[in-house]
Amino acid sequence: MSATTISDKALSAQDVPDGNQLSVSFRLLLGLYAIIPLCLLLQLFDGWFWQGFLQHNLPSSPKQFLLFQIIFGTPHIVASSILLVSNTEYLKFYKLKLILMTVAIITAFGVGSLFIPYKALYVTVAAWTVYHVLKQQLGVGRGLYRLPDWVFYLLLWLSVTAGLFVYIGIFLKNSLDVQQLEFIKLVSGSLCVGLICSALLCERYVTTQSGRCFLWSNVLLVLSTFYLFVQQYYFLAILVPRLVHDATAYIFYVVHDYNKHHRQPQNSMYRYAARCHLPVFIVLPLCSFALAFVLESYGDSAVNAVTEFFFGMEINKAITLGVLGYLALMHYYTEAFTWKQGSPYRRFIAFSK
Rank of each mutant, 00 (worst) to 15 (best):
M1R: 03
S2A: 12
K9E: 15
L11I: 08
V16G: 02
Q21I: 04
S25I: 04
L38R: 05
L41R: 04
G47P: 01
G52A: 11
H56N: 14
N57V: 09
P62M: 03
K63A: 08
K63I: 03
F72S: 05
P75I: 08
S81Q: 15
N87A: 02
T88G: 11
E89D: 07
L91H: 07
K95W: 12
L100D: 04
I106T: 10
A108Q: 08
G112K: 05
G112W: 06
S113V: 13
G141F: 10
R142S: 02
L144G: 07
R146D: 13
D149Y: 09
W150F: 15
L191M: 12
S198Q: 12
R204A: 12
R204N: 13
T207H: 15
F214N: 11
T225E: 12
V230L: 00
Q232W: 02
L236M: 02
L236S: 02
L243D: 09
A247D: 02
H256G: 10
D257Y: 01
D257L: 02
N259L: 11
R263Q: 12
Q266P: 15
S268D: 15
Y272D: 14
Y272C: 15
V283Q: 00
S288D: 01
A292M: 07
V303R: 03
A305T: 01
V306R: 06
K317S: 13
E335C: 06
T338E: 08
Y345G: 01
